[in-house]
Amino acid sequence: MISLGIESTAHTLGVGIVNEKEVLANESSVYSGKGIHPRKAADHHADVLKNVLDSALKKSNVSLEDLDMISFSQGPGIGPCLRIGATAARTLSLRLKIPIIGVNHCVSHIEIGKFATEAKDPVTLYVSGGNTQIIAYVAKRYRIFGETLDIGIGNMQDIFGRTLELKFPCGKEIDILVAHGKKYLHLPYTIKGMDFSFTGVLTEALKYIEKEKKEDIAFSLMETAFSTVVEASERALAHTGKKELLLTGGIAASPRLREMCEIMCDERENKFYVPPFDLCRDNGAMIAYHGLIEYKSGKRMKLEDTVVKQKWRTDEVEVTWLS
């Protein structure tokens, strides 16, 4: 079966094409305005949709008529952005007379991660701009064991970067600063059970600006934030008794975060997995693949079921494709 997936939850418009065995294409275009303006991001998605779709078809050597199904990210995310992807998916489904499946974006990250690595039943640390969650499959649901109580690590980085007047999005430049930091400046560390928050540490880090070297501030901020999520992940591993950690989301690109996860897993003799970066960040292939496995497990959707769900929680997803 060939499945085409459309991702449009936030700043990325992605189109992926997959079959059961491989990713045939995974194209995207990222809205790069400062912060997220829902309308502007949605306009961007509408503008580039045709091009991204065409280039995915071309890359994969698949024509529209070859497609067996369409899937799209139904939520959670920004309403106007979600609606662009949903509308495109409905149109394709009607025109090509093929089934449509709406999937939960967070769960798609996990499923493509399992597909791309050898992870079978991991605890997932999902770190992106808006989301920072620790998720595991228990008693027939993907359950959130820990999550940020305020902002995601990506957003924290962006606010910090904007204050330092770094180029947006700031992840890469911050990674460079971090690599040059040496001195640890004391910062608060907020973890409660397996939940955490980042506004406190961010506020304190911003107070060091102009008093300390920016490399040292970035280093201290990121060491603190990453330690928090790695510790929460370790608690989730101990708690659930699972033996694998899967790291995904845009911030999985950070070399230091990967290293910390790896050491933590080594110390407790658990396995650590991280998919190739193109499958970590928001992308269309994960949506295509997730739709495919839901379809094959018997899931069917009518058009009236395809309304977007901005606040769709991971643990509300009915998991039909796993035992």
């Binding site: 640890y184 004391h186 560390y189 060491e223 603190t224 330690s227 790695v230 510790e231 370790e234 290293e259 910390m260 996860c261 050491i263 933590m264 080594d266 110390e267």
Partner: peptide, 13 residues
Amino acid sequence: KKGYRIKEIDLHL
């Protein structure tokens, strides 16, 4: 001790 975090954070926590 946790090897993944720097010793300043580790010891403090």
